[in-house]
Nucleic acid binder design. Structure first.
Lengths: 244, 244
DNA sequence: AAGTGGTCTAGACCACTCT
DNA sequence: GAGTGGTCTAGACCACTTG
């Protein structure tokens, strides 16, 4: 017997909007894990006692928001986390052509989060966090230097083991090892100059101009799960924006 | 007598897609000028002999593409050009708070377009183009230095008159004086260093790091109508991107 | 062949804006 | 009150994917 699951929409809220919100909650609650299919439109429409078209609009909304992915003939799926290599979108490292980038963990340390990190990660000041330093190379040449902060109870599985075997993409790795799916990110681009230590790691001169990309990454529930600062040669930076 | 205007959709093309394309052509052809309302959904649906919902989807498509704007209870309108002040989105000039930016034309010259300019503007090599140099100030301080290329038969009205009276926003001015509506733009961001002349205009040292934004602006028909290079202090640059 | 999402219809009613 | 776009329904049929 199909228990009818009615959604009440506040005045001023459309029914498909309320349905989308309800589905969103169920997804965040983990009723359908990332990568799995949610029930067919027909089934969901019947379950909520609405017309097919109304449920379709709700699902289309979730698709626009990047929460689910629709695939003609196959079904509607909860989106997996971001694939990964998105950091190199901001830089063009010549010559090397399309060589696969590599990455190496330079340092890993569990620390009490400094005030700014705690604020950005939305954890209590002084709570434990994991700090990584990472060097990305393209065609064997140092290209990007990263400092990454991760909230600690959540990323505990990364405090042990040899980082040499972590592979080149972190986000799929977060999912596999910690069950954390990065679903959305916000990058802020700025400009600066390299400090002496940073310059050495990138094989550039101290004081060399650099582009700085600071990223907050969020999971399905909207929690900030990563705070990353990436530095690279300012001359290699390029980015294109469409304006409408 | 309403002449039925049938659209034939190629196989693999949805009917609303074909309708959107047809409407797009009519808009580009100038049947409804920018800012004016297009006929009501009902009328358009009847004119094309399709259901209301189908025409709605077509119009929604055009709205997504930024070609029209829908307004509940009022109608559907062909979009005006971009408002303007979009260049300062890339920079933060402190202290001044939210002072209104001002602009001054430093130079204006009709020239044979150099090869690169001709390519970008998609005009014949050596055809005439108008080159402007422009300084934007915020709170009285020089902030952005711009070089702007405009294809010439089209922008002829700008070759005469005193540029002092041009006002601070160029795009509305293009529309008013030349009937050119900028509808879309693509910005490419990079970093560089200021040349001696540029540095002087911005009151910075020669060789000072600068952010460079190169913009191609397009009109309704997709023609490139402006090629602009903007320089500003790299330290004032900041930009935020959301990734999904 | 069965099941999925995508398109299209025809119509009712609601919410907003203008006069 | 007249006219606009926005929501919702109920149903038919199509196109794609998979066993």
């Amino acid at each position: 017997m199909p228990s009818l699951r009615l959604v009440e929409s506040e005045p001023g809220q459309s029914r498909y909007g309320a349905l989308a919100a309800a589905m969103r909650s169920r997804i965040i609650a983990g009723e359908w894990p990332p990568g799995s299919a949610i029930p067919a439109e027909q089934a969901l429409a019947a379950e909520h006692g609405v017309a097919l078209g109304t449920m379709r609009r709700a699902l289309d909304l979730l698709a626009e928001q990047g929460l689910v992915e629709r695939s003609h003939g196959r079904g509607t799926f909860v989106r997996q986390g971001l694939s990964g290599a998105t950091m190199l979108r901001f830089f063009r490292f010549g010559a090397a052509g399309e060589q696969a980038p590599q990455s190496r963990i330079l340092a890993r340390e569990a620390l009490a989060a400094p005030a700014e990190v705690a604020r950005v990660l939305a954890i209590g000041p002084g709570e434990q966090a994991l700090r990584l330093k990472r060097l990305r190379t393209v065609g064997g040449q140092p290209a990007l230097l990263e400092e990454i902060w991760l909230p600690l109870p959540l990323f505990a599985p990364l405090t042990g083991g040899d980082p040499a075997g972590w592979g080149d993409l972190l986000y799929p790795f977060y999912a596999e090892r910690c069950g954390v799916h990065v679903q959305r990110a916000v990058d802020t681009i700025g400009f600066g100059r390299l400090g002496a230590v940073q310059a050495r790691a990138l094989r550039l001169a101290a004081g060399h101009p650099c582009a700085r990309v600071q990223r907050q990454a969020f999971d399905l529930a909207g929690r900030c799960v990563e705070w990353r600062t990436t530095l690279g040669d300012a001359n290699a930076f390029h980015y294109t924006v469409a304006i409408t």
